[in-house]
């Protein structure tokens, strides 16, 4: 009998890339189910097309272009596909979804060398590409028929989009406790803050991610909104409004915490989160786009190598 000989350690924790990705998929499920309930079949179709295109594209690229063993088994393409679908409006045409998947997988992920090598979050890159290229589709917030009626939905604008129309004071009034359960308008995945937070807590409990990035984004958004709102409530929307509307929760819980495109150390994560929170609030208050979560994350993705260089773990026995 030939026994195995290898350097230590001889045992391994019950953790693998696949298991981590599976946990993220499980964590996304509540929000996905809620979006299905509210947006019905059209959202289900978007999700199906997005996930399927991402997986098939990654498989095809590794097999035919890179000629390397397939990496689809690690489930990361499914995560990208789900996140992309959640970042699109529920009315998005399916061919646009496919283009988004092409940008996410082919451009943002595989050109850099696949999982672990990409600089930008693939799903966000896909979304931003679509937002810039197809603004009409990407800002059509009509609400398709869902399994649960969505009577008081606005058509044509998200809550954030209402700010210039109604003014900050009126817009603030539209946000109440109910918004926690059901956001009005916006990307499919943003609909239920509660479902997203439940998924985030699951990731924390499973120790898949650490809370620092998410918490520092929330804190920065709250602090900046608090200060501006205090100075001029007629001009600037309040804390609750900024936390609960738009993509802050989806972005902070699932997009900014992507391993590959976020800093490794806890303090680096805090810097990263503060940066995202700051940029998103600057775009919201002073930019021409009503929402800037995607841009904020992409911009901070660029800073990650720098942050990683600056922030290290404290080494034992060294000052």
């Amino acid at each position: 009998m030939a026994y195995i000989v290898s350097p230590n350690p001889h045992i391994h924790a019950a953790v693998s890339t696949k298991r981590l990705m599976l946990d993220v998929i499980i964590a996304l499920c509540p929000a996905v189910i809620v979006s299905f309930l509210f947006y019905g079949l059209s959202e289900m179709a978007i999700m199906a097309v997005s996930v399927a295109s991402c997986v098939v594209l990654e498989w095809a690229i590794t097999k035919y272009m890179l000629k390397k063993p397939s990496t689809t088994g690690d489930l990361s393409a499914i995560v990208t596909g789900m996140l992309l679908a959640m970042n699109l409006p529920p009315t998005c045409p399916l061919w646009v979804v496919f283009i988004g998947a092409v940008v996410s997988i082919a451009v943002a992920k595989m050109t850099f060398g696949g999982i672990g090598q990409n600089i930008f979050n693939p799903a966000i890159t896909g979304r931003v590409f679509l937002l810039v290229s197809f603004p009409t589709f990407m800002t059509d917030w009509t609400v398709p028929a869902g399994f649960i009626s969505n009577v008081d939905a606005f058509s044509g604008a998200t809550l954030l989009g209402q700010v210039p129309i109604l003014g900050a004071l009126e817009a603030d009034k539209l946000v109440n406790l109910q918004t926690l359960f059901r956001n009005i308008g916006g990307s499919a995945g943003e609909i239920s803050a509660l479902a997203l937070l439940a998924g985030w807590v699951y990731l924390l409990v499973r120790k898949v991610i650490k809370p620092w990035i998410t918490l520092s984004i929330f804190a920065t958004v709250a602090v900046i909104a608090g200060i501006f709102h205090m100075v001029d409530p007629a001009q600037y929307t309040g804390i609750l409004f900024n936390l609960l509307t738009g993509g802050v929760i989806l972005g902070a819980c699932f997009m900014a915490t992507d391993y590959v495109t976020s800093p490794m150390s806890a303090w680096g994560g805090v810097v990263f989160g503060v940066g995202i929170g700051f940029i998103v609030m600057m775009i919201r208050y002073f930019g021409s786009y009503p929402e800037g979560m995607s841009f904020a994350i992409l911009l901070m993705n660029m800073a990650v190598p720098l942050i990683n260089m600056k922030f290290h773990q404290r080494k034992f026995g060294r000052k």
Partner: peptide, 12 residues
Amino acid sequence: TKRGEESMCIRC
């Protein structure tokens, strides 16, 4: 005890 197949670092 057998090691799993090595894959890319995901920078976790």
